Every structure is written in C-alpha cells, then in structure tokens.
Amino acid sequence: MDLEYKKREIMKDKEEIIKNINKLKEEKNAIILAHNYQPKDIQKIADFLGDSLELCIKAKETDADIIVFCGVDFMAETAKILNPDKKVLMPEIEGTQCPMAHQLPPDIIKEYREKYPDAPLVVYVNTTAETKALADITCTSANADKVVNSLDAETVLFGPDNNLAYYVQKRTDKKIIPIPIGGGCYVHKKFTLEDLKRVKEKYPNAIVLIHPECNPELQDNADYIASTSGMLRIIINSNEKEFIIGTEVGMIDRIELELEKIGEKKVLIPLREDAICNEMKKITLQKIEKSLLEEIYEIKLDKDIIKRAKVAIERMLNIKG
C-alpha cells in the first residue's frame, strides 16, 4: 500500500473517531478532562486540559453527568471523590496506575502517625483515595508550600514525593518529615545535573524550568521551579525565546498548543527526550470512543473513603491567596 495513501486513511479514521467522540459527548452530557502529560491527540480534543490542581478544581465545578478522565488512576479517583454522584470513566484501566501514588500505603502512614502523633499529614494528590482518606489535607506541586504554611503545626508529615518535600522545606520554617524514605516519580528522578550541563552547553541562553518532583541538585540550578501550569504561565508571559523543560515531554505539546493560539513560536528543549510517563501514554482516541460508547471503565470507591478523602481535598481547595 502507498505510504501517503495509508497516512490519509489513518487521518480519515482519526477524524471519524473524533467526530463520534463529540457526538457521544453531546448525547451523554459528558466532559473530557486531560492532564498536561497526555498524548497530543488527546490534548487537542479535551474540554479541559491542566495540571493536578486545575483538574481538581474543574472536576469539582463541572455539571456534566459523565466525566471521562484522561490521566492516571489517582486523578480519576480524585474526580470521583469530588463528584460522588457522577459517573467517572477512565478510557483505559490496565497499566494506568501511577507508581508514586502507591508508595504511601496505610501501614506506613500508621507507623509515622504513631511516631509523630501531633504532626498533621499532608499528602500529594498523587496518592490513592485510601491514602487521601487518612490525610489531614492534600496538596499539589502548584500549592504544596502554601498548604504546609497554612497549618498550625511546627512539624509536618509530607508524602510521598521526597523531592517535593525538599522544595517545600526550602519555603517554610516548619520541620518537614518526608514519608516514605525514597518516595518519588520515576520520570522526574531520571533528570541529572549532567543532563542539564549537556543541554545548557548547546543552549546557553535558554531559561531552565524544573518541576519540583526533580532531584534537589536540579532544583538548585534552575531559573524557575514550577508545576506544569506554572511553567506554561512563565513561558507565555516571558520575552525570552528559549526554554529547557525539566518535566515529562508531553508538557512540550501542551505549551506548543497554547503558543499556537496566541501566534507565538518559542524554542522548547526537553531536558531529556526519554522523560516519558508510560502510564500517561496508555490512553488513545479509540479508547476514549469505546469508553464513552460502552461507559467503561467506571471508577467506583467505598463511600466512607470518598467522604474522608473529600474533606482532605476540600481543605486544600479552600485555602485562600
């Protein structure tokens, strides 16, 4: 088969799938929420695209009957916690479990609670619903320091990302106890100082943006440490033209989409080309279509877990400023 013909057929199929997705969304009063690390095709069709905090807020505000969540397991669970009466679907259930979200199980929390009985527990939203239900409050990479500083305590338990704990410790007078030891994101842990030196040699004038899930030596050598939404704002509002992006490579697609909307072009350099979250890339247009059509795979959580986890999430969302 001619290669160009094959490409045209693929494009035709894609357009048909997108058309069907939009039809199903209208018929079923559904909304598609997608994380910034999702594949570009998914980003383009999402009703709302954002980081963990933005998606939490959008999930709480939506009046849709069905939420199709394109991300990893803890994100869809969070949407369900905030919308217990709505149907929350994930287009793919196999292989979409965030490894970091499962690093802080109840037994570890119990151990540290006994050791530090007066210390509140702050958990990253990148955790399971069960873990959120045991927390005093949740946080995201965009508001972790603000959440910790809002607490009336001198010592704070913080998990599971040790690098985010390091980031917070530099921005608070409180004592941060990271739990568990070694917790973190395998994608962001890939980045090294050698990577930064190598890329910076090639692009000496580029602004360095590093995610707070990255190792301390990367944070200490960044021009900016920012969540994905923070990175986007910095680039959109900057007069600089070159940026080194120290997070999952899907973020570059997101930034490019936003730059296209305002007619700007900037040079976006991945700190590592292989900084890929495999779990985030499991979702496809075909799977979204099937999920909407058959209303699979639905997120179901214990009512008591939902009730307790919702308190921790809403405490975060209610922090002003």
Rank of each mutant, 00 (worst) to 15 (best):
D2G: 07
E4N: 15
E4D: 10
D13I: 14
N22L: 12
N22T: 05
A34C: 03
A34Y: 01
Y37P: 15
K40T: 12
G50Q: 08
G50W: 09
S52K: 04
E54C: 08
A59G: 10
I67E: 11
F69C: 02
C70F: 04
K80E: 04
D85M: 12
K86C: 02
V88L: 01
M90Y: 05
Q97Y: 02
P99I: 06
P99T: 08
Q103W: 06
I109E: 11
K115E: 01
A119K: 02
L121R: 09
T128K: 14
A129T: 03
A129D: 08
A129K: 01
K132T: 01
A135M: 07
A135L: 04
S141M: 03
N143C: 08
K146R: 15
K146G: 01
V148E: 02
L151I: 14
E154A: 11
T155W: 09
F158T: 09
N162F: 06
N163I: 08
Q169T: 04
Q169H: 01
R171M: 09
I176G: 10
C185N: 11
Y186Q: 13
K190Q: 15
L193G: 04
L196N: 03
R198T: 13
K200R: 14
P204I: 08
N205L: 00
I210E: 10
E213L: 12
E217P: 09
Q219A: 05
N221M: 08
D223E: 08
S227V: 10
S229R: 10
S229D: 15
G230P: 15
R233E: 12
I236N: 03
N239R: 14
E240R: 15
K241L: 13
F243E: 12
D253C: 06
R254C: 02
E256M: 15
E256G: 11
E258W: 10
L259P: 14
V267P: 00
I269A: 04
E273C: 03
E273W: 09
A275D: 05
N278P: 00
I283D: 00
T284R: 14
L292S: 05
K300D: 15
K300R: 07
L301P: 09
K303M: 07
D304G: 14
K310F: 07
A312L: 05
A312F: 08
N318R: 15
I319W: 07
K320H: 01
G321M: 08
G321R: 03
